[in-house]
Design a protein around this nucleic acid. Sequence first.
DNA 1: AACATTTCTTCACAAATGTGAAGTTAGAAT
DNA 2: ATTCTAACTTCACATTTGTGAAGAAATGTT
Lengths: 205, 205
Amino acid sequence: MDKYRIINDSDEVARLFEIFFNYVRVLIEIPKSDQEYCRQLFQAVFIKKDTIIETEGSLHKYHNFIVSGHMRNFHHNTEGKEITTDINDGPRFFTSYYHFIHQTVSNENLQCVTDCELLCISREDVEKAANIGLTTKEYTERVLQYYLEQSKQRIIDLTTLTGKERYLKLMNKHPSILQNVPLTHIASYLGLNAGSLSRIRQELL
Amino acid sequence: MDKYRIINDSDEVARLFEIFFNYVRVLIEIPKSDQEYCRQLFQAVFIKKDTIIETEGSLHKYHNFIVSGHMRNFHHNTEGKEITTDINDGPRFFTSYYHFIHQTVSNENLQCVTDCELLCISREDVEKAANIGLTTKEYTERVLQYYLEQSKQRIIDLTTLTGKERYLKLMNKHPSILQNVPLTHIASYLGLNAGSLSRIRQELL
DNA sequence: AACATTTCTTCACAAATGTGAAGTTAGAAT
DNA sequence: ATTCTAACTTCACATTTGTGAAGAAATGTT
C-alpha cells in the first residue's frame, strides 16, 4: 500500500475543503473567488501512518493543512536522539514555519503519526497567491502570530509547571493526542523522560 | 531625580542613532531618506534603573529599542508571583510583541533593570511609517521572525537541557546579563528556583 | 497461529530541583 | 556612619525527575 495517495474523488475533496474553509473562516473571511482559487492551489492527499513528508537536510516544499489526523515535528540532537518539538491534530496548519519562510535547508522532519488527510500548497503557489493580491498575506501573518502566542505560552508552562501539570494540561486541551500519539513522542514534547511520564500517568489513576 | 529624561543633546542623540542604524543594518539596508525620517519618529530617552515603562492592564504604546542597558519582561501568575519571561541587553528591540501587534490590553510589564538609553517609537508612528512605504514593514517581519526563532530555541533548551546547562548557555551568550540583572529574575527566566540557581553557581566554582 | 517489533510499564537507585528558614552580604537611603 | 532593605547564599530535607534494565502488553507481519 502506498504511503501517499492523491485524493481525486470530488465528494471527498469537497468535504476536505469544507473543513478547511470552516477553520480558516474563524481568523479571516475569504471571498468566494479566492476560495475557488484555493481549490486549484491546494492538493488533497491521504498519507499513511508513520510517513515522513518533509525531512531534515532538505528544503521543505509544502505548507500543510491537517484536515484530519496527527502530525509531529522532530529533529535529531547532537547525540542523535529524536527531539519532538511539536505535536498537533487537525484541523490546523502544520509546517516547519521558520524554514518554510526562510527557504533554508531544514533541520526538522514532519511526520504523520496517524493516517492523515492533508491539503498541501507549494511554496511557489503561496507566493503566487500573495502576488495576485489574495488575502493570503494577511492570513499568513495571523498564522504566524498564533504560532508565536503558542510558543510564548509553552515557554511559560515549561518554566513554571511541573511535568505532571504539563501532562494534565495537554490531556485537557488535546485529549485525542494522548490517544493517538506514542507516549515516547509526548514525553519528548513535554520535556520528560519516557519512564517519568509513565510514572506520572500511574500516579493519576 | 526623575525616572524618565528626554535626551536633547544633539551629540548624544547622534550617538544613539548611530548604534541603532548599525544594529538595524545587519538585517536590512535603510536608505538615507528613511534614516532621516527615523530620526524624527524615534525619541531618545534616558530611563533610570528599576523603572517600569509599560505595565500590565494597559495598552502598550511604544516599540522600544535598547541602545544600552538591560530590560526584562515579567507578569504575575495566578498566585501573584512574578514570572520573568524575557531578559535582554542592548542593542536590540525589546517589546511585548504580541500585545503591541494586537493592540490588546497587555498582561506584561516592561522594566529597565539597569539605567537604560532607549529609542522609542509610538504605535501610531510605526503605522504611519509603514503607510508611507518605508522599509518598516519588511523590517518588522524580520524582527518577528527573529523573535520566533529565539522562542523555538528556548523551548528546545527548556525541554532538553538541565538547569546547569541552561545557566551556562546564558552565561556564554550574555555574560553582561549575569553581571547586571538580579539572580532572582534570571532564575525565573531559566525556570529555576532562586536557591537552586545559587547552588548551581556554587558547584561551578 | 506464531513470531517479531514496538510501545508501555515497572523498579531500584541516582541525580536534580524545590522549599522555607536563617544568615550573610551588599547597596541604598537618611 | 548608621540604618534599612533587597539580594544572595546556605542548609537540611522533601519532592521530582532521570536512568537503564527488565518485563509485560499491544500491535503488526508472515
